[in-house]
């Protein structure tokens, strides 16, 4: 940690780095917090083996900051191996809470819950104004094709998912201008304070696509964390859509949002298969991952509920 502290001091141009502490460590990246000459900063560093290019993510965060999206400010970044890590970003620390269940249940966030739906709509409208051409390396994604392939690779048969794929193909929304989408905009990936949205985090899944993807994903049942309210567990569809329309000047077709919500539910189901497969294949032996395989039927049930009377 001493070595990392001095490497960080050099990277951010500080005399002194203290209180370096690891916040979390996932399979592909680690997050640390530290004080650089008294300024609270966050380090995200990639482990070797992660195929994603953190340089692209850094460019996206910088572009989002410039577009006025509430995001941490990028202080330093590199995608070259160094004493700090195989690739890293240093960002300003934003205070608040990311844990969905706390945001949805704790009294402290009562006011935040009221303002979040509209704030989410405005933040999404803002981030969708970023010119994708300013972020080289961002790739367009055909999400239906991508998850079709993931399901096929898993080798697991799921009649419900086949029905959902058929519905998605038959109700494909009209094409739209290429837009930078966040790709994982939901509770858990936003910093929330007592006053509401403070920062949009976790931009590693950003890509070029349909802006309605972000709105639909935010409404997927898994991201309501047990709350009856459809938008991130805090609001109604109309609140999100009205705020988005007002800030963007665009007209939102709620059926297109629902299409993306259905695809999002299907995506999360396929991701659950992947997590269980990580255990079964021996990549990461864990009864927790194994149990996730039996949550796939929750997504299947959600798909039937979402498509009831829409087939």
């Amino acid at each position: 940690m001493d070595e990392l502290s001095s490497a960080l001091a050099e990277v951010v141009g500080a005399r002194e780095v203290v209180e370096l502490a690891r916040l979390s460590g996932g399979a592909s990246r680690e997050t640390f917090r530290f004080l650089a000459d008294g300024r609270p900063l966050i380090l995200q560093r990639q482990r070797g083996g992660d195929i994603r290019d953190m340089g692209v993510e850094a460019d996206v965060v910088r572009a989002a900051f410039a577009a006025g999206v509430p995001v941490p400010e990028l202080v330093a970044s590199s995608n070259q191996p160094s004493a700090v890590g195989s690739a890293f970003m240093v960002l300003t620390a934003v205070e608040g809470e990311t844990i969905a269940r706390k945001i949805l249940r704790d009294d402290e966030f009562r006011t935040a819950r009221e303002v979040l739906p509209a704030q989410f709509g405005r933040a999404l409208a803002q981030l969708h104004t970023i010119d994708p051409a300013t972020v080289p390396g961002l790739a367009p994604q055909d999400q239906v094709r991508m998850y079709r392939q993931l399901l096929d690779t898993s080798g697991e048969p799921h009649p419900t998912f086949e029905l959902a794929f058929r519905w998605l193909e038959e109700h494909q929304p009209p094409p739209c201008p290429p837009t930078l989408v966040h790709g994982d905009f939901r509770l858990g990936n936003v910093m929330v304070g007592a006053d509401g949205l403070r920062a949009v985090l976790d931009w590693e899944l950003a890509h070029i696509g349909d802006p309605m993807e972000d709105l639909g994903w935010l409404c997927v049942k898994a991201w309501r964390f047990g709350s009856p309210k459809p938008v991130a567990g805090v609001g109604e569809y109309a609140q999100l859509i009205e705020a988005y329309e007002e800030a963007s000047g665009l007209t939102v077709d709620p059926e297109v949002v629902r299409w993306w919500e259905v695809l999002g539910t299907l995506k999360w189901g396929i991701m659950c298969i992947g997590q269980a497969n990580a255990h079964v294949s021996g990549v990461a032996r864990s009864h927790e991952l194994a149990a996730i395989g039996r949550r796939v039927c929750e997504n299947e049930h959600d798909l039937f509920l979402a498509l009831e009377e829409r087939w």
Binding site: P159, T160, L163, R294, C297, E298, H301
Partner: peptide, 20 residues
């Protein structure tokens, strides 16, 4: 398809009866 959906959904409910 309506028959297929009805039967597949019934199976999903059976899976949930065990899983959750």
């Amino acid at each position: 398809l309506p028959e297929v959906r009805e039967l597949v959904w019934a199976t999903v409910k059976d899976k949930l009866t065990v899983a959750n």
